[in-house]
Amino acid sequence: MDNEHIVTAFDDDLNNLQNKIVEMGGLVEKQLLDSIDALLKFDLDAAKEVVLHDNHIDNLELEIDEAIVRLLALRSPVAADLRSIISCTKISCNLERIGDYSKNISKRTLALSDTGNLPLMGSGPLKTVSKMAEIVQSMIKNVLDAYIEKDATKADDVRAKDEDVDHIHSGLYRELLTYMLEDPKNITLCTHLLFVSKNVERMGDHVTSIAEHVHFMVHGKIPEESRIKRDNSSSAYV
């Protein structure tokens, strides 16, 4: 349905809303990239920047909420318009949470400056976290494309991709546990890294949720087939 509304101001409002979601998504993507980069390079200034910038994302969420309330009150949207607007409330909420996780990664990066043994053994798990983050980042990018293009198939592909993230997180969980068993001095560092990994894994879940909202926006229902989950860490005991 690409044709325009009779009331063109309605189209302006909807476009404005979409632009804000895309802007927010772009910021979230960059925050993830920056937070992982700061962790890998152990760049404390960059980590502080990430913590500060989270504000922008929070403010955008508020702006989006306001725009949505206004749209609902003034335009009484129905059908595809209504679905698209309702999806935006949920997508912005998910994006905001992803932003929070990036901020948390950077906070942990700052906390790690006290542990001192980062160069010693961090590199292996860090590479793994970085690989996970790369996947999640591409998921964010693709889900935003799916949102803009109203492409449910693309959204479904993103949803399927989360399985890989879960799998890597599960593996990293076991790896970090063995480091902790080797030497109790590793526990602080490994616990932080475990949380970082869990953060990235949770981001994947939020992207998955966005993908489902895109699917709903297009088809009016959430995807039917259940997703394969491969994060076993919550039920694992070593």
Partner: peptide
Amino acid sequence: IFTVPKDERTQSYITGRIG
């Protein structure tokens, strides 16, 4: 009809695209 209309024309009418 007001959430997931089947026909494109219904969609266009109720969302204010044809009148």
